[in-house]
Design a protein around this nucleic acid. Structure first.
Length: 804
RNA sequence: GCGGGUGUGGCGGAACUGGCAGACGCGCUAGACUUAGGAUCUAGUGUCUUAUGACGUGGGGGUUCGAUUCCCUUCACCCGCACCA
């Protein structure tokens, strides 16, 4: 008979909740482990089978660490602000808050039904004013330190909807809702100066135990590049302009320069003869979307301004062009073009028949661009030098002649931090009638979202909050000055930038968290989530954390010491699960049909945690079959403990048991759950073959199984005669000496091919082993008539005879 | 184009710092039990071959007594970035 998973699971879930089994003692003197999941956005679709994969992994670690004597912090919460709730509110006129709360309730029920060992007393939600008070507080600190500022930034403005749209809401230049035209319009926006932390965000990646691919993605995103700025005079103008280049050594080969279309100098320097052409070009570029400008950029376009720059190193007049292959957002928005040694410049110069001068030997620039290293030519004082030396010398020349300087540029841009939305944390700023603005004082935080009967666009581009005059308009009680609240809200990223701090001290009313506790619990030992957050969430959270470190709020430079990305669970056809494909698996259904333990076990057994593997109903059945096999091995038909479980120990399972304890323990630590499970399967298979199973081993095995399948393990633990929960029982240990057998099997190879296997004492000498191998009759057959050239003996493993 | 990763049976996947390729599971085959089995148990299951044996970790080459593992080269797929000067 198999166990009744519904009964068993409900029983233990109730027990855990009622007894607060997984309540963390924040002040514990035990060694601490902080195992964190990326908290979910509670979407209306409910839990997806992808969610439990990462959650199970951290749960296994948490449960094992508790049993190993650690105090474990394993919390869960809700990333509650977000666009879908606002859209829902716009569509239905209902409150995004009620909608989100309902979704949270569903998520919570689903998560609890999977038996995760969260401390639910620490549940937090980013939409809770007690929480976002501190999100706002951090913003005011950023503001005070000059790291939050306003700037005019182009946004997606939809006149028909009277609202600003996020990039993902714009499809082919039309609004996703209603298919209305969308234009780029500059608006005053809040920005966070993440670029001030670029170097530290880059350098501190070194010490993190993160997947190399994620570190690389962050490095690329930050995009540090070293080079120089070079100042060009403009023929007939007073002003100068500056370009950024990583190849100052090729300055002698600069045959033209290019300004980005948005460069402020374009309109100043354009000659009368070229004005019409330039204006036409600028207009053409403006109507191109970002996508067109970047994606369809196979064929370069541009136009001559009529003006000339003076190459500072040789005083040659070179034309100034405008072209959209130069981006205003990177470097200085202007480049010096060296067509001989830069692919983009080469394409452009070829198309517009601009001169190409070779300055680095090694290729044939009449035929194709040459970007490699080589001796410099046509380059005056750089002739004969290699690239690195030439770069250094050119920078020296530029600096001593006042024509430029060494410069480091980043691809990373400041973080656009404002959203023209209702459903987010209000940015705690007041604009006063005298033109000043101030941050809301700490004692006046949080600035709560007003309850609004209807959430609709303001029509001005401001958020719907602008529709609530009683909320927007304020009067300073001291001075009587009138002011207006900032109507922008924070982006969804804000709340997730620091939630892991709040879990440590969720009810603190005085500060975001007690510094003493932060010291105890940070950094996070293991953080697991999807790779889709590889760059933005993780970079933003690191930025805030470093800022909080600088102002003395947190004790560590980095929040997440170890990070791991779980893979995706695909549909049975190896495609992404999606409603439209109809291949979505609902965890609720699996919990009913197979049970939470089976789901957890199956998801961990599918493959390595970081791999993307297709869902398989057969595989799921197999996981359940294993749990049934465990149950039947230990429990009789009538529900009593099997007679096979004995106090005696005949030693037959000794090696298998110790091996299993060792492998499962180390595999869990390394997040290799699939192989840990296979080892448990091996043990159970051995158990079926054995006549009796020592109770001690059974208890040890149930403990090993309990992090993965906690409900059935609790039930078995109970059946074994234990009254208390298994959750804090001591994790089994293994004895290394039990793993080595007195006799080992040695592989005997001839010419690298296995020809025989012999059993020998583990202590046999190299010489004796070699002799035994050579005397073996099968081996004799293979080596007679041949000359033995060499015999390789690897003690305890193999003998390889080289003979021909 | 640049950066990163992955290629192993019919399928998901194992294999420690180079040492028995295919653990474990799924699927399949046969048998047992059974009124029945899509339950359970037992055995088998990389390919070719009559056994012996030969071949086999995307392809080609190399280092080595020995390569899934290291090196070179090539192909395919996946992920990220994408005119970043």
């Amino acid at each position: 008979m198999s166990f009744d998973h519904q009964k068993v699971e409900q029983k233990w879930q109730k027990h855990w909740i009622e007894n607060k089994t997984f309540k963390t003692d924040t002040y514990s003197t035990k060694e601490k482990v902080y195992a964190l999941d990326m908290f979910p956005y509670p979407s209306g679709a409910g839990l997806h089978v992808g969610h439990p994969e990462g959650y199970t992994a951290t749960d296994i670690i948490s449960r094992m660490k508790r049993m190993q004597g650690y105090e474990v912090l394993h919390p869960m919460g809700w990333d509650a602000f977000g666009l879908p709730a606002e859209q829902y509110a716009l569509d239905t006129g209902n409150s995004p808050e009620a909608f989100t709360k309902k979704n949270i309730a569903t998520f919570k029920r689903q998560i609890q039904e999977l038996g995760f060992s969260y401390d639910w007393d620490r549940e937090i939600s980013t939409m809770d004013p007690n929480y976002y008070k501190w999100t706002q507080w951090i913003f005011t600190k950023l503001f005070e330190k000059g790291l939050a500022y306003t700037d005019e930034v182009a946004v997606n403005w939809c006149p028909a909807l009277g609202t600003v749209l996020a990039n993902e809401e714009v499809i082919d230049g039309k609004s996703e809702r209603g298919d209305h035209p969308v234009v780029r319009k500059p608006m005053r926006q809040w920005m966070l100066k993440i670029t001030a932390y670029a170097d530290r965000l880059l350098d501190d990646l070194e010490d993190l135990d993160w997947p190399e691919s994620i570190k690389d993605m962050q490095r690329n995103w930050i995009g540090k590049s070293e080079g120089a700025e070079v100042t060009f005079n403009i023929d007939g103008h007073e002003e100068t302009f500056t370009v950024f280049t990583t190849r100052p050594d090729t300055l002698f080969g600069a045959t033209y320069t290019v300004l980005a279309p948005e460069h402020p100098f374009v309109k100043e320097i354009v000659t009368d003869g070229q004005r019409e052409a330039v204006n036409a070009y600028l207009h053409k570029v403006q109507t191109k979307s970002d996508l067109e400008r970047t994606d369809l950029a196979k064929d370069k376009s541009g136009v001559f301004t009529g003006a000339y720059a003076i190459n500072p190193v040789n005083n040659k007049k070179i034309p100034i062009w405008v072209a959209d292959y130069v981006l205003m957002s990177y470097g200085t928005g202007a480049i010096m073009a060296v067509p001989a040694h830069d692919e983009r410049d080469y394409d452009f110069a070829t198309k517009f028949e601009l001169p190409i001068i070779e300055v680095v030997a090694g290729g044939d620039v009449t035929k194709e661009v040459y970007v490699g290293d080589g001796e410099h030519v046509n380059s005056g004082f750089l002739d004969g030098l290699d690239k690195d030396t030439a770069i250094t010398q050119m920078i020296e020349w530029l600096e001593s002649n006042g024509k430029g300087e060494k410069k480091i540029t980043y691809r990373l841009r400041d973080w656009l931090f404002a959203r023209q939305r209702y459903w987010g944390e209000p940015i705690p700023i007041i604009h006063w009638e005298d033109g000043t603005m101030t941050a809301v004082a700490e004692e006046d935080l949080p600035v709560e979202l007003p309850v609004m009967t209807e959430i609709k666009p303001s029509g001005t581009g401001e958020s719907p909050l602008a529709n609530s005059p009683e909320w927007v308009n304020v009067v300073d009680p001291k001075t009587g000055m009138k002011g207006r609240r900032e109507t922008n809200t924070m982006p969804q990223w804000a709340g997730s930038c620091w939630y892991f701090l709040r879990f440590i001290d969720p009810d603190n009313t005085e500060q975001l968290a007690d510094p003493e506790l932060l010291k105890e619990w940070l950094p996070i030992n293991i953080y697991i989530g999807g790779a889709e957050h590889a760059v933005l969430h993780l970079l933003y959270a690191r930025f805030w954390h470093k800022f909080l470190y600088d102002i003395g709020v947190v004790p560590t430079k980095e929040p997440f010491q170890k990070l791991f990305n779980q893979g995706m669970i695909l549909g049975e056809g190896n495609e992404k699960m999606s409603k439209s494909k109809g291949n979505v698996v609902n965890p609720d259904d699996i919990v009913v049909s197979h049970g939470a333990d089976t789901l957890r076990l199956y998801e961990m057994f599918m493959g390595p945690l970081d791999a993307s593997v297709a869902w398989s109903t057969n595989g799921l059945d197999g996981a359940r079959r294993f749990l049934d096999r465990v149950w039947r091995l230990l429990v009789n038909e009538d529900g009593t403990l099997s007679e096979k479980v004995t106090e005696a120990n005949d030693g037959s399972l000794e090696k298998a048991y110790h091996e299993t304890v060792k492998k499962v323990t180390t595999d869990f630590d390394n997040l290799h759950f699939n192989t840990a499970i296979s080892q448990m399967m091996v043990f159970i298979n051995e158990g079926y073959k054995a006549n009796e199973i020592p109770k001690q081993y059974v208890e040890g095995f149930v403990k090993l199984l309990s992090p993965i399948a906690p409900h059935v393990s609790e039930e078995l633990w109970h059946l074994l005669g234990n009254a208390k929960t298994i959750s804090y029982e001591v994790w089994p240990t293994f004895d290394e000496s039990k793993l080595v057998e007195d006799e080992v099997e040695i592989v005997v190879q001839v010419m690298g091919k296995v020809r025989a296997k012999i059993n020998v004492s583990k202590d046999i000498s190299k010489e004796d082993l070699e002799k035994l191998a050579l005397d073996n009759e099968h081996i004799q057959e293979w080596i007679t008539g041949k000359t033995i050239r060499k015999v390789i003996v690897v003690p305890g493993k193999l003998v390889n005879i080289v003979a021909n």
